[in-house]
């Protein structure tokens, strides 16, 4: 129990950071109804760009901005594959993701990882800050939970505003009904492109924050990101779906979904004392369970109805 409690703040912070990625994924997966697998690659791109630029001595905010732009570029490439070249969205994402593997290595100077020593760089978030705040060395507002929480709130507010604008509404219409959108003069291809760019920008931003938090960027850091993102979206919907109808609250539920996911993962690690190499398997199982819950509920309702009718 002790180890779980001790690890909890770290898990919560990490969950919040992944939550930003999940919010990005929500734009393509739920709003645009596209399965975008670029994220596994663009998450790492964000981390790699941020790490290399921090090492290069740039201000952390500049690093985050460039990471965001790099992610947008990745989304742009997927968008070109999909809308201009007519490749199915899921395949377009896989192609970009594959290509990004080499690109990400190149960004990190052909190394598989880049360390970020917290003592050398002025970072926004770090696992170390967590301990520092606990010790009283750092002010409370530098606690990763607060920093990332504020960051997430800012992103949610901007997205809430954006998807209420004329342009944002037209992106929602593109995903909701392409026929209708085109009949109303909406350039659905351009909107898909915009959505993919915005989504991957957020994903890369999340990767940039994670590389700071964990103190390194790694070529494998984005592997399975799509699964974590889907988990967060679905956990958020299953848990808070009935409560949160408003768009901003929905986005918040995704962020909370990611946090819940990390608490569950941390609990599994702490209580079951499992080799961390089994994490991916456990992740897959957790996501499968949450994906199945709504369907199983539906089934039991149906069979429940039958029994009543028989009686």
């Amino acid at each position: 129990m002790g180890s779980f409690i001790n690890a909890l703040p770290g898990a919560l912070s990490q969950g919040l950071i992944w939550g930003i990625m999940a919010i990005g994924l929500y734009i393509t997966y739920s709003i645009l109804d596209l399965s975008d697998l670029t994220v596994d690659g663009s998450f790492c791109t964000g981390g790699a760009v941020c790490a290399m630029m921090l090492v290069g001595g740039y201000n952390v905010w500049v690093c985050l901005l460039v990471s965001f732009l790099a992610g947008m570029l990745a989304g742009f490439v997927t968008g070109i594959f999909h809308t201009k070249l007519g490749i199915p969205a899921i395949l377009s994402g896989i192609l970009t993701q594959l290509g990004l593997w080499s690109v990400n290595l190149a960004i990190m100077g052909m190394k598989a990882n880049q360390a970020l020593n917290v003592n050398n760089y002025d970072m926004l978030v770090s696992l170390r800050y967590l301990q520092d705040v606990a010790k009283g060395i750092r002010p409370i507002y530098q606690h990763p939970l607060i920093t990332v929480g504020l960051f997430t709130a800012g992103i949610i507010l901007v997205l809430y505003w954006f998807f209420g604008t004329e342009l944002g509404s037209s992106i929602r219409a593109t995903g909701a009904n392409g026929h209708m959108a085109r009949a109303q003069g909406i350039n659905t291809n351009r909107n898909k492109m915009l959505g993919l760019m915005l989504a991957n920008g957020l994903v890369a931003l999340s990767g940039a924050l994670l590389s700071q938090f964990q103190g390194f960027a790694d070529i494998n850091m984005g592997r399975g990101a799509i699964v974590i993102g889907l988990a967060a979206i679905i956990i958020g919907q299953v848990t808070f779906g009935k409560l949160f109808r408003n768009f901003a609250l929905k986005l918040m539920s995704i962020s909370l979904g990611a946090v819940i996911y990390y608490i569950v993962i941390q609990a599994v690690i702490s209580f079951l004392d499992i080799n961390s190499n089994y994490l991916k398997l456990i992740s897959a199982l957790i996501v499968a369970i949450f994906l199945a819950v709504p369907n199983l509920k539906l089934k039991s309702q149906k069979s429940g109805g039958k029994e009543k009718r028989n009686a």
Binding site: F162, G164, T165, E166, L167, S169, I186
Partner: peptide
């Protein structure tokens, strides 16, 4: 019409 960043 052009769709801008004005409120929907």
């Amino acid at each position: 019409k052009k769709r801008t960043l004005k409120v929907g």
